[in-house]
């Protein structure tokens, strides 16, 4: 038996040629084909579900944004998203990676719970988990219906709009589980805030 690990020039040559064919077909033709087809069947989604305000790109309905002032303080006229490990930097996705017993994470959660309760004028016990935890992507565009609920009165007051109208708007941008059972109920904060701005401008 020949030594099984000794590579011959013939085999390496075949390997190089096979790899080059694969690179052209799988690495160039295939992604270009999918790009072409995607631009045909769903151009908006393939380009990132961008949303516009006055013809200007204002972000993506799939990518969460920070709704804060220049100093990082939350703006009361907007529904607030979840905490983000990356500060909603679209070029740096990721989570905090802090463990379940991390003292640092525990301190952060206590602090966030107090801040969210005070900002919205609610009982700290009514602040849901997603409001005090950072998402996996750092770009989560959604909050739970519970977190949206406790923000309604504060946003309504800041915008001088009736809370009932606000609640109707939240309901419009809320989704249940996909097909009724996949995932979890969620409210899209980016779309909701966009609609809020449109509503305020129309008044």
């Amino acid at each position: 038996m020949s030594a099984p690990l000794l590579l011959s020039g013939r085999q390496l040559g075949a390997a190089v040629r096979a790899l080059l064919i694969a690179t052209v077909v799988l690495g160039v033709a295939y992604p270009l084909l999918i790009t072409g087809a995607a631009q045909l069947i769903a151009p908006g989604r393939a380009d990132g579900s961008l949303v516009e305000v006055d013809g200007q790109v204002a972000g993506s309905s799939l990518i969460g944004q920070a709704f804060t002032d220049a100093d990082g303080a939350p703006l009361p006229q907007y529904f607030q998203p979840r905490p983000s490990a990356s500060g909603y930097d679209g070029a740096a996705s990721g989570g905090s990676n802090l463990g379940p017993n991390s003292a640092e994470l525990a301190d952060l959660i206590v602090q966030r719970r107090a801040e969210v309760a005070q900002f919205n004028g609610v009982d700290p016990a009514d602040v849901p988990a997603d409001a005090v935890t950072a998402s996996a992507s750092g770009l989560d565009p959604h909050i739970s219906p519970e977190y949206a609920e406790i923000q309604i009165d504060r946003v309504a007051a800041a915008r001088d709009l009736p809370a009932s109208e606000m609640a109707a708007l939240v309901a419009e941008y809320s989704s249940g589980r996909d097909a009724g059972f996949i995932g979890a109920p969620h409210v899209n904060v980016v779309e909701l805030n966009l609609a809020l701005d449109r509503l305020s401008r129309a008044r």
Partner: peptide, 22 residues
């Protein structure tokens, strides 16, 4: 976990649209 209990659910590092089971 202590931090997880303070939050009320294991949502650190999870996305809202997926939720815990998924």
């Amino acid at each position: 976990g202590t931090a997880t209990q303070l939050a009320g659910a294991a949502m650190e590092g999870k996305e809202v649209r997926f939720g815990e089971p998924l």
